[in-house]
Amino acid sequence: MRLFRIFLILFVFLGIRLSAESIKLCSFNIQIFGVSKMAKPEVVSILIDIISRSDVIAVQEVRSRGIAPVVQFMHLLPPKYAYVLGPREGRSGSKEQYWVIYDATKLQLLGETTWADPEDIFERNPLGVYFQTQDKFDFILIDNHIQPSNAAQEISAMPGVVKYFQELWDERDVVIVGDFNADGVYYDEDLLTAVFPEQEYQIIITNDYDTTLAASDNTYDRIIITTSAVEDYTGACGVIRFDEVYDFSALTIQPRHVSDHYPVWAEFNIGVDTD
């Protein structure tokens, strides 16, 4: 009888764990996305495959002057995907857009807007997107691409951006993603915990991850969440090393044609949110 009770407890526990649904969130600096990249079928095929494996994908470095490459790419994805495209941002002629792709069968878009940046700190003002899953999990996604030459100032200003979106939508759960350029010659990665202290944030993609194709080992791309969202985080995360996933020896392209950054990802439960 005692053995049966132990087995029953374990079965119930494992059943709950196995039945918990989750979403996979990905961030990807695609590197100069536009007409030229869409003209390379092998590159597009790999990008479609990568993005189709996630439920929410925050993209940086959309450089096209027109919307046509984005629309063309979306038509190649399964029809369940919808998207948000931010305004063209940047002080120079080389402007970029943030692009958030999401599975509309799993997530509802509640709001989206760009940080106004009244003090003109950011080269590319972060984009905030407010989502709710069909279950309990609602959260704010902040997509950003930090200017390398101004990394320290822009990263230090990010908690203010978080607070702005939290107050705007009255939501505590925030997932900050993007190319932070938070390493190498641009930024001392050890300073990141001072900007995002553990009492308020959890840095999911930590300094020990390599997120670029370069020979150097740098963690430019990050996923950081507010402590209120920790209960929703499954603990699963990583870097998609597409140069190892796909057989480039059989292709006419090199990994660098896909991007100079690897996508980073994290997984979140959708049925345990309590706020």
Rank of each mutant, 00 (worst) to 15 (best):
245 V>D: 11
237 C>D: 05
240 I>P: 00
254 Q>C: 10
251 L>V: 10
247 D>T: 07
241 R>Q: 13
233 Y>D: 01
239 V>W: 02
250 A>T: 15
241 R>P: 06
254 Q>F: 13
264 V>W: 00
252 T>M: 08
231 E>V: 13
231 E>C: 06
258 V>E: 01
248 F>Y: 12
241 R>T: 07
249 S>H: 09
259 S>Y: 03
237 C>F: 09
248 F>V: 06
246 Y>I: 07
248 F>P: 01
233 Y>M: 12
247 D>W: 02
243 D>R: 11
231 E>P: 01
231 E>S: 13
240 I>N: 03
256 R>K: 14
253 I>E: 02
245 V>W: 10
266 A>T: 02
245 V>I: 15
232 D>Y: 01
254 Q>S: 15
256 R>N: 13
261 H>G: 04
242 F>P: 00
245 V>N: 03
244 E>H: 03
237 C>H: 14
243 D>E: 14
247 D>K: 11
251 L>M: 15
263 P>A: 13
256 R>D: 11
244 E>I: 09
262 Y>K: 05
250 A>H: 04
261 H>R: 01
237 C>Q: 10
264 V>M: 02
260 D>S: 11
258 V>G: 05
240 I>T: 12
254 Q>R: 13
240 I>D: 02
255 P>I: 11
246 Y>R: 09
263 P>V: 08
264 V>E: 04
244 E>K: 14
232 D>S: 15
232 D>F: 00
235 G>K: 07
231 E>W: 01
245 V>S: 10
256 R>H: 08
264 V>T: 04
243 D>T: 13
264 V>G: 03
242 F>T: 08
239 V>K: 00
239 V>P: 00
236 A>R: 07
240 I>G: 01
235 G>W: 04
231 E>A: 14
256 R>V: 14
263 P>T: 07
253 I>V: 10
234 T>I: 07
241 R>V: 12
263 P>G: 12
238 G>I: 13
257 H>R: 12
233 Y>Q: 12
260 D>I: 09
253 I>K: 03
244 E>T: 12
245 V>A: 11
234 T>Y: 04
231 E>N: 05
245 V>E: 14
262 Y>W: 05
251 L>P: 00
233 Y>W: 09
257 H>F: 10
236 A>L: 08
262 Y>F: 15
235 G>N: 05
232 D>V: 05
253 I>Q: 02
245 V>R: 15
260 D>G: 08
234 T>W: 03
262 Y>R: 01
237 C>I: 01
245 V>P: 00
262 Y>I: 02
266 A>E: 00
248 F>N: 09
245 V>L: 15
248 F>G: 10
236 A>Y: 03
243 D>F: 09
240 I>A: 10
236 A>M: 08
242 F>M: 07
237 C>A: 13
246 Y>G: 06
257 H>K: 11
259 S>F: 02
240 I>Q: 11
238 G>F: 00
249 S>K: 14
265 W>D: 00
249 S>Q: 14
